[in-house]
């Protein structure tokens, strides 16, 4: 810093901004990493195929979710079966 620097506008604290942005994006990306392991989409697809052998359902009627409670991971599987009428009409 020379004597001439004193006449410039005060420096912006861009490092603080960098830190804040990084903390947000890193937390977000770590969250994604934990809540959906690599195998979830494939698991969902295969489950869908098995259920379809017996009941006609589509992609939106199956929900797979992995939750973490303390040290314990819970795999939640939710399949909405169609109404009786719908099933008959689809046959």
């Amino acid at each position: 810093m020379g004597i001439f620097d004193y006449f410039r506008s005060p420096p912006s604290k861009s490092a603080a901004l960098a830190k804040e942005r990084l903390q947000i994006i890193v937390a977000h990306e770590r969250g994604n990493r934990r809540s959906s392991p690599d195998y979830l989409p494939v698991l969902k697809k295969e489950l869908l195929e098995v259920v379809r052998k017996y009941v006609p359902i589509d992609q939106s009627q199956i929900k797979v979710h992995l939750d973490r409670e303390g040290d314990c991971e819970v795999l939640e599987l939710n399949i909405t079966l169609p109404d009786e009428e719908q099933r008959l009409s689809q046959r």
Partner: peptide, 16 residues
């Protein structure tokens, strides 16, 4: 540059 607030400091990177 870190002192001036223009660059992430060692502690910032470690914290992240």
């Amino acid at each position: 540059r870190a002192d001036r607030g223009d660059m992430l400091g060692v502690d910032d990177v470690l914290e992240i």
